[in-house]
Simulated assay, not measured.
Amino acid sequence: MITVANRIYVNPEFAAQFEERFQNRARQVDSMPGFIRNLVLRPAKPGDPYVVLTFWESQEAFRAWTESDAFKQGHARSGTLPKEAFTGPNQLEVHEIITDSQQG
């Protein structure tokens, strides 16, 4: 299993709009083979990034998502926030899960 963390730096003036975008997301990813879970984490400290964290069965499943029409449709909505809503570039991180307290 892997996680994909997308760290997104959001201008505080646009935080409510950013959060609403995820609360009303297209949900295209939810039915993708290999998709497990999606979490959106709000920063506790101003200036830190939001983290969009997804869990996948494998890197291949994640790659298939990024190459799918559903990905393009789901991300077409990302243009709804202006450029000034973001204070820096996104940072994408992929990690393999080696231990999980929920699985014993």
Rank of each mutant, 00 (worst) to 15 (best):
I98V: 14
S78M: 05
R7T: 00
A5P: 00
Q17W: 06
Y9W: 12
V52S: 09
D48T: 08
F55C: 03
E20F: 07
R21M: 15
F86K: 03
K83D: 09
L92G: 05
Q23F: 04
N6M: 11
Q23H: 14
E67P: 02
P89T: 07
E67W: 06
A70S: 13
L81C: 02
K83P: 00
V52C: 05
N6D: 08
V51D: 02
R77Q: 10
P89K: 11
A16W: 06
I8S: 04
D69H: 08
F14A: 06
G88Q: 07
N90E: 08
D30P: 00
A26D: 14
S68Q: 04
A64L: 06
I97D: 06
V40T: 15
S58M: 05
R42Q: 10
V4I: 12
P43E: 07
Q17H: 13
A5Y: 09
P49W: 09
F71A: 05
R37V: 01
L41W: 10
A16T: 12
E96W: 09
R63T: 11
V4W: 06
D30E: 15
E60P: 00
D69F: 03
F14C: 02
V94N: 04
K83E: 15
T66E: 14
Q102W: 12
V94Y: 08
Q17D: 15
A44Q: 12
D30Y: 11
I36D: 09
A70I: 04
W56G: 01
T80K: 07
P46T: 10
P33A: 15
T66F: 06
N38C: 08
A76H: 07
V29P: 01
I8D: 01
Q91E: 15
R25I: 01
E13Y: 05
A85W: 03
P82Q: 05
I2G: 05
Q59D: 14
I36V: 15
P49N: 11
P46Q: 11
A70V: 03
E84Q: 08
A64Y: 08
L92R: 12
R63I: 04
A70T: 07
S68N: 05
V4M: 10
A15N: 07
K45Q: 14
G34S: 09
A64N: 12
V10E: 11
E67H: 08
P89C: 02
S31Q: 13
G79I: 05
V51T: 14
F55D: 03
Q91L: 07
P82C: 02
E93A: 01
T80Q: 13
S101H: 12
T54N: 13
A15V: 05
A26W: 10
A15M: 07
F55P: 01
N6L: 13
K45E: 12
V94R: 08
A61K: 06
A64Q: 15
R63H: 10
M1L: 12
F35I: 02
Q59N: 11
F35L: 05
H75A: 04
E67Y: 04
N24V: 01
K45R: 12
R42E: 07
V94G: 02
A70P: 02
Q103E: 13
E84A: 02
V40M: 13
F86I: 00
